[in-house]
Design a protein around this nucleic acid. Structure first.
Lengths: 236, 236
DNA sequence: AGGAATAAAATTGGATCCAAAATGATATTT
DNA sequence: AAATATCATTTTGGATCCAATTTTATTCCT
């Protein structure tokens, strides 16, 4: 829980890669003692977001462009696999949900552009679409690993490149074709589209990384999480 | 480090799945205080070997046969991907190392059977062979995720089914063909063999799980790790 | 006697404390 | 003046302590 907050802080880039994580300072900033902070750090270290060195504490992990590239490649393969596994599990209800997400995307892109106010909703629709396919696939490892890959700064689904209409339009069209293929039970075809869908995002992100400065990449946070609340049991 | 020991204990099956992890007792058994134990538990929880519930502590995670099956399927795909990525990176030195492992397997299997004393060496050769391919592939995510999948009890490379000569012989023959294909730069073909190599292991393990009792599965521990020592800097 | 309510024990989670190690600063020597 | 050595400060890692919650045991009531 303090771990979640730390993860957000790191992924939003508020802590520089390589930066040392000062336990006293961080604990105070987060308003907790060092003990829960350290358990959170241990978990983050295992998940690979921070690195630990004995007697030297934790620091924010640095990712090379090559590692970021590698993350996309594995994600492309895993999400393609999710499509092939999802196909035999398709039901009318699942197909309907997929097309609902596509329809929501259509609505958000209706004006021939993506308005500023629609960035966050589009992002959430995008995340939901991908997650739903992983759910239908029914293999929890895929969802788990894809989530881990999203924990790499810049690889995260927090980041979408909004600038060029043609690219976002094409990306949304991929979604439609994937939904079509899956609803016809054609998992291999859906997987092929998905693989290209992810690999192209990789190429595009890396080209942007090379040209412009990293700071220019837009990070769109989720809206105040009134949704997505997990089970919280409280005494009266 | 205390985490490593705990991981071993759990993977060896000395703690039953679902069993509650008593912090006081465990800390005493491991000869440490509760604080380092709890950081270790937090890390293991993130890596998915134990589950945590607020105010109820940690318990050993249970895996359904379906989850075990899922782990093999993802591992098959990841290791196949490792083959396709490794092919363009092949050098004569890498090819030599692969064939050295194959030759070692030939030696261990020379008598037309796998002697009891050769179980551990064969296991280590097997692990090294697979890891080398992942190293050549040069994508650290693959090695990381495959290692996580090995952290599932029964999916682990700690377990090899030694009983039937024909199966282990065939499995070793897969290794030879994979090495051949990779040394010729044929990553797709190597990947296809690797996928079947892993998926057949899955089928065989699950069939054994259904027929005989789980306790009959042989878990062969690594030999006292004089090798595999990580960097350890000590003051004189 | 069975079940609900209450009390006692145990266990967890967080805070504080302390020793060991690392970092940084100052002094000393060449 | 530069390099080394020594000392002080900071920071980490582990142990202990304490409050809050859960679990277990007991008592009480129907």
């Amino acid at each position: 829980m303090v771990g979640e907050r730390l993860r957000e802080v790191i992924l939003r880039g508020e802590l520089q890669p390589g930066e040392k994580l000062h336990q006293n300072r961080l604990a105070e900033q987060l308003g907790v003692s060092r003990t829960p902070l350290r358990t959170a750090l241990a978990a983050l270290a295992d998940s690979g977001l921070v690195v630990y060195e004995s007697n030297c504490g934790y620091r924010v992990r640095e990712f090379s462009p090559e590692q970021i590239r590698g993350a996309f490649i594995v994600r492309a393969e895993l999400e393609a696999l999710a499509c092939t596994l999802a196909a035999p599990n398709m039901t009318d209800a699942f197909a309907q949900q997929l097309f609902d997400f596509v329809a929501e995307g259509d609505r958000l892109l209706a004006g021939g552009q993506l308005l500023e106010d629609n960035h966050a909703p589009y992002r959430e629709m995008n995340v939901s679409f991908h997650k739903l396919i992983q759910t239908i696939a029914g293999n929890p490892w895929i969802a788990d690993f894809v989530a881990r890959l999203h924990n790499v700064p810049l690889t995260s689904d927090r980041i979408i490149l909004w600038e060029h209409w043609k690219i976002i339009h094409r990306s949304h069209d991929d979604h439609r074709r994937i939904a079509e293929a899956l609803s016809h039970g054609n998992g291999m075809r859906a997987g092929a589209i998905m693989r290209e869908h992810v690999l192209f995002a990789m190429d595009y992100l890396l080209s942007q990384l090379n040209s412009q400065s990293e700071g220019a990449l837009r990070i769109v946070p989720a809206r105040a999480n009134t949704q997505n609340r997990k089970t919280s049991k409280r005494k009266p």
